[in-house]
Amino acid sequence: MTLLSTRGLSKHFAGLRAVENVDFDLPEGEVRALIGPNGAGKTTLVGMICGRITPSAGRIAFDRADITALPAHRRIRRGMAYTFQITSVFARLPARENVALAARRRLRGAEADAVVHEALDRVGLLDRIDQEAGDLSYGHQRLLEIAMGLAQAPRLLILDEPTQGLSESEIAGFTALLRDLAGRTTVLLIEHNMSVVMETADRVTVLDYGAVLAEGTPAEIHENAAVQAAYLGTG
């Protein structure tokens, strides 16, 4: 079943075509990587999907319902979760409260506590549960973002460059976490680190100049000449 689909989705900023006429389908349970050079429109596309950016044209459907007109928070309630590209944790609140805010939207009391512990445990931050988020290292803040995504138990988890700024060992931990999620949660992953993409994604969509350039399995994309041209700027 298709969980998410867009038709003719476009965004123009003062004449600049950031995203142009994108048709995109994401089946339930798949881990999909969204790649492309800087400025290809990845964050804009995802921003339109989760409601942070209003599209100039096109429709978005989630779970077979048209959500184009829904405000962001109503889309999140339908089962999306979005982790920010630039870490956007609550710096002056403890890690526990950061994740609890994500959990409390659907759970209360002891149930929420359990989910908070589980989410922090899965990203390896359980020992820092009472630390203020702003005091955590950059890599740990990224992991806290991911824990906030997990605590929402989303049907679609949107991760915007989650491994940016993580150490090698943290990336390995994240890759394992993502493999563990695969099959249970649908994931849309914006990622620059190609080895993470190769190891985790079921399929890959390549965006260039705001349009879909190619789509296929990681191996197919790896072989694709047009993709290589877009990335390296050579024929």
């Binding site: 928070h73 999140i76 609550f90 805010l101 994500a102 409390r104």
Partner: peptide, 24 residues
């Protein structure tokens, strides 16, 4: 209460609260 704690979160970072699915 959760309501009050969400208000504190709105004070700290409203956009993030919205993207956690709350009607800020």
């Amino acid at each position: 209460r959760p309501f009050g704690k969400t208000l504190v979160a709105v004070r700290e970072n409203e956009e993030r609260v919205r993207m956690l699915g709350y009607d800020t």
